[in-house]
Simulated scan of single mutants.
Amino acid sequence: MGGPVQEALEALELVDHHCHGVVTADLTREGFENLITEGAAWPGISPFDSPVGVAIRRHCAPLLDLPRHAPPDEYLSRRAELGPREVHRRFLTAARTSTFCVDTGYAPERLTTPAELAGTAGGTAYEVVRLEGVAEAVAAKGVEPDDYGDAFQAAALDAVQRPGVVAVKSVAAYRTGFDLDPARPSVAEVTEAARHWSARGGRLDDPVLVRHLLWTAVDLGLPLQLHTGFGDNDIRLHRVDPARLTDWLHLTTGTIPVLLLHCWPYQRQAAYLAAVFEHVYLDVGLTLHHVGPARARAVLEEAMEITPFRKLLYSSDAYGVAEFYCLGALAFRRGLAGLLQDRVDADELGLPDALRFAEWAGAHNASRVYGLSGPS
């Protein structure tokens, strides 16, 4: 593989518009395997024997001074020998990513902070605030149901005013799916829902309060990232097709940018939404490192069939292991370069346009949408 588009993408410093920290501690085999799958390391079934596991052994092993396709035991032994700090440095440097927009809302283990992540990569980091975490922190303080709506809005506003915050995110896909009444809920509806939530406790999964959260995001005025499609088994996949957001997108036209994350297997539906709504954008992050470089092009081709070139962004959605930063960047560069170069070679696309579109998707689109202009 080669050509000018590939060369341009190899030289481009990526903007990763949605990612997470990496685990700072040494990882056991079980710990590592659990982090490289959205399922689990079940007895007798290793995630190394999956597309993502094969891709790690093929493309990440050489960065640990191992041969391609190194066996899992050798891979993990070498990883432990080098230690987390050196492993992180090697993979983050190899990703050649200059800017990270880091979702800090999910950290069951000690993860690198945005500043630590950026320092390891020699880049810049910004923060993405997960709104469900803000809501649950408000509820944990014992707020009265009558006061919940205002208290959540105030807490969310405080959160997004922290230095370096450039966006908010919702995981409504995990909590309710998108089969929601698209209208903004009334104050009375929010109060009644908050009363029920207060009585039963637990995470935010009330449909009325999720709607309130999404409309609060609109009021905050920052770009909103929405998990769609592929995730762990907490997802009900048939309920997270982004096309189910169509009525809500009609109501929010002219407000904030809405970034559809991941999307698989609904990348075509996401592309439709990006093509018909001015404020909708998409990526296929997470998907790319799970399908690996061998299939990244196929996913990108479907996502780009009708997507305006100004609407596709790069993300790794790397979480837990630094390999996913490297693998996501590699899969994106190779997949995008291959499909654009073939269009150039077939005279369906001019080379200057192909180079421009590659730069847009890899960096400029995210910089424009989030207003990124320098170190946080």
Rank of each mutant, 00 (worst) to 15 (best):
V258I: 15
L213S: 05
L209M: 08
L204D: 11
T255Y: 03
I256Q: 03
L259H: 14
H238K: 12
T228L: 01
F230Y: 14
D232G: 04
L222D: 08
L245D: 10
G202E: 09
L214H: 02
F230L: 15
H227S: 01
L220I: 08
V240Q: 02
P242S: 00
A243G: 15
L251F: 09
L260P: 12
A243W: 13
H238D: 15
G202S: 06
V218C: 03
G254H: 03
A243L: 15
I235M: 06
A243N: 10
R203F: 12
P257M: 05
L259S: 05
L251E: 13
T216M: 02
H262E: 06
V210Y: 06
D205M: 09
D206Y: 10
G254Y: 06
H227I: 01
D241S: 14
W248N: 03
V258K: 08
G201C: 10
V210C: 03
F230I: 15
L209P: 11
P257A: 09
D232K: 00
H238E: 15
T246A: 13
L237V: 11
H250I: 10
D219C: 01
F230T: 10
R211F: 02
D241L: 05
Q225M: 08
L259Y: 13
W215C: 04
R211Y: 07
R244Y: 13
R211P: 06
L259N: 11
H250K: 14
H227V: 00
L213I: 02
V218T: 14
L204G: 07
G231I: 01
V208Y: 07
T228F: 04
T228D: 00
R244G: 10
L224Y: 04
L204E: 11
T253E: 15
T252E: 07
R244M: 14
W215D: 03
W248D: 06
D219V: 01
D241Y: 03
G201P: 10
G221Q: 10
V258A: 03
N233C: 05
P242T: 04
L237A: 04
H227E: 01
C263D: 12
P257I: 08
R203I: 11
P257T: 09
R239N: 07
H238V: 14
R203Y: 12
G201K: 08
L249Q: 11
T216S: 12
L260M: 04
H262I: 01
D219E: 15
L209S: 06
N233G: 12
L222M: 06
